[in-house]
Amino acid sequence: MSIGLIAGYGELPLIAAKNLIKDGHELVIIALYEEVTADLGSLGVTVEKVSVTQVGKIIKLLKNNNSDRVLFAGKVNKSLLFSDLKFDLTAMKLLATLPNRKDDTIMDVICHELNANGIEVMEQSEALYPLYLGKGIYSKKKPSKVQMEDIEFGLEVARELGRLDIGQTVVVKNKAVMALEAIEGTDKAVVRGCSLAGKGAVIVKCAKPSQDKRFDIPTVGVDTLKNIADNNGKVIAVEAGTTFVVDVDSCVRYADENKLIFLAV
């Protein structure tokens, strides 16, 4: 039997695929072509390109490739739900059952449908556990007392945002909320919040209090830090042990070169 990897945006699908192959698993990749950016074709495994709206086709491909487990890796932009993409019959049936269109509601229904077809949804950490970041200050520059107070305030707000299943990221300054992440995603929330804050915004990102480990684990990388620096932000704090950091060495190097404060709390 094989593992199916449903690949979205970013480097996580490539990292997950390499780790699964290294561990000796047979792999088939379902690349969501509206989102996938990593070069997955060089891995020497089957890569099927499918629209994110073709849920029935994805399940059929997994079955045809004898996949009894599946891993989600990489971001899928929720705004695609409100685009003019054509949904297949399975996707339309699932959407019709939703009481709301929160992230967890949507993903729970998709996971249930996969399980009903004999396909277990794996926890993302099964292939990405090394990316979890432990508690500590990683940049040379340390947060001030005022910045630590902003981080603590931001973490409290971010957890409530997550409890409501709205987003994972908040931008704060002087214990005032500049922006909350919603459907637009982290990058646009950072741009908006930093613009309102002027210089010195503090960005906090954390998992939901009841985070489902099968999908949507908070993730940051160099692109996240670059976006913060480009918009005059000063601090990026992530929740230790619950956030994936892609290429932590490059993140630390970028933070130091651009005088950002980077820590896990």
Rank of each mutant, 00 (worst) to 15 (best):
A197M: 00
P218M: 10
I3Y: 12
D187V: 11
K226S: 15
E239M: 11
D230Q: 14
L85Y: 15
S51W: 04
V157N: 05
A197N: 05
D249N: 09
G10W: 08
V238C: 11
K57T: 14
D88T: 03
L161P: 00
M122V: 12
L89H: 06
N117Q: 04
N231L: 13
Q54E: 15
H112Y: 08
V45S: 05
V246H: 06
Q211R: 08
R214E: 10
A255N: 02
N227K: 12
P143I: 03
A17L: 05
K234N: 15
L98R: 04
C206N: 02
I151Q: 01
A264P: 14
D223V: 08
Y9K: 15
L20R: 00
L61Q: 09
L12M: 13
A127V: 01
A116P: 14
I15R: 10
I203R: 00
N258C: 07
G134K: 11
K142A: 04
K78H: 12
V109W: 07
K102A: 02
K142L: 07
A116Q: 15
V252I: 15
L95P: 00
A255D: 07
K142N: 10
D216A: 10
E156A: 11
T242D: 13
G162N: 00
V222H: 14
K22I: 13
S139W: 01
P218T: 04
D39Y: 13
A255H: 13
G233L: 03
K78Y: 07
V222D: 10
D84P: 07
N117W: 05
N66R: 10
E26N: 06
I217W: 02
